[in-house]
């Protein structure tokens, strides 16, 4: 094979800074395995990131990188992809970046259907800055800014993005690694906006305040509660409380923004 996994990594920047038990390293591994599997030239890949633990992911990638402000990765990625459609463009975000501060960009990216692959590492809190409340923190959970448990319900990322019109929506976990890698490959190959939520974990903050479980137990929790759509639909209601669907939730053929824009260019140039 022409490109090896190592070709996508800045091995000189390893080991990474993430905590023991954090799933971000697993997610980055799945990403580079997916890229190697597809044999995409690293110099044709642009990774945009924002602020947060997962916003550090670009430090370990030997691709083009754009490390920007909190919540704006998708907006930077949009500008990149529309002028350079030949590049493979990613937005790697945490739950804070993607939907808490950057929710407006997320729903419009889903609607606009620019061919970007968004990968959201959802660890249910702001890990980098000390475990504060996020829009994906489950209701009642304790964080350093919801010390009595939060009164706010959490956002379901995949449902939000699907409702906004995304043509590819999938969820994986850091336990189901082989599936995650396949999902990311399919997301890259999907023409149009692709959204991948990766359910991961933050033992250092969210876990410490809420789990009452060891890391191994939490991995088992992921294994048991993440189920396919077919299995989820058959679960009794009491089981549905903690269970969630993984796999591809939406996949439909649509024309991406750039394809449609080509026709606009034609029209303008014929009229002009």
């Amino acid at each position: 094979m022409a490109f090896q996994v190592e070709d996508y990594l800045r091995e000189d920047k390893l080991p990474h800074i993430w905590c023991a038990g954090c799933g971000h390293g697993i997610t980055v591994r799945a990403l580079v395995e997916a890229l190697a599997g597809l044999q995409i030239d690293p110099t044709s890949v642009v990774v945009t990131t924002g602020i947060g633990c997962f916003g550090k992911a670009d430090d370990y990638l030997n691709t083009h990188c754009f490390h920007g402000t909190h919540g704006r990765a998708l907006a930077f990625a949009t500008g990149i992809k529309v002028v350079k459609p030949e590049l493979t463009v990613f937005a790697l975000m945490g739950d804070g970046d993607s939907v808490t501060i950057g929710g407006n960009h997320l729903i419009h990216a889903a609607r606009r259907n620019v061919d970007i692959t968004a990968i959201v590492a959802n660890n249910q809190n702001y890990g980098m800055t000390g475990g504060q409340l996020s829009a994906t923190t489950p209701e009642g959970s304790r964080t350093t800014t919801s010390v009595y448990g939060t009164a706010e319900p959490e956002m379901d990322l995949c449902s939000l993005v699907a409702a906004a019109g995304a043509s590819f929506v999938a969820r994986g976990t850091v336990y189901h690694v082989t599936q995650l890698q396949k999902i990311i490959q399919d997301a890259i190959q999907h023409k149009g906006f692709s959204f991948v939520e990766v359910v991961t974990m933050c033992p250092t903050y969210f876990g410490r305040y809420n789990w009452n479980q060891t890391l191994i137990e939490r991995m088992n929790w992921l294994k048991e509660n993440a189920v396919s759509k077919a299995r989820y639909d058959k679960l009794p209601p009491e089981k549905k409380e903690s269970a969630f669907m993984i796999g591809k939730l939406v996949e439909k053929d649509t024309e991406d923004f750039n394809t449609k824009y080509q026709r606009i260019l034609q029209k303008a140039q014929n009229q002009g």
């Binding site: 642009v46 945009t48 754009f66 920007g68 402000t69 919540g71 704006r72 907006a75 930077f76 990625a77 949009t78 500008g79 990149i80 529309v82 002028v83 350079k84 590049l87 407006n104 960009h105 419009h108 824009y261």
Partner: peptide
């Protein structure tokens, strides 16, 4: 290319992304 963004935060971000792409 003309792009109408969702707000001015996104507008500024998109022009930076496009310019960084040359």
């Amino acid at each position: 290319i003309y792009l109408q963004m969702e707000d001015e935060l996104g507008s500024m971000a998109a022009i930076i992304g496009a310019s960084a792409s040359g």
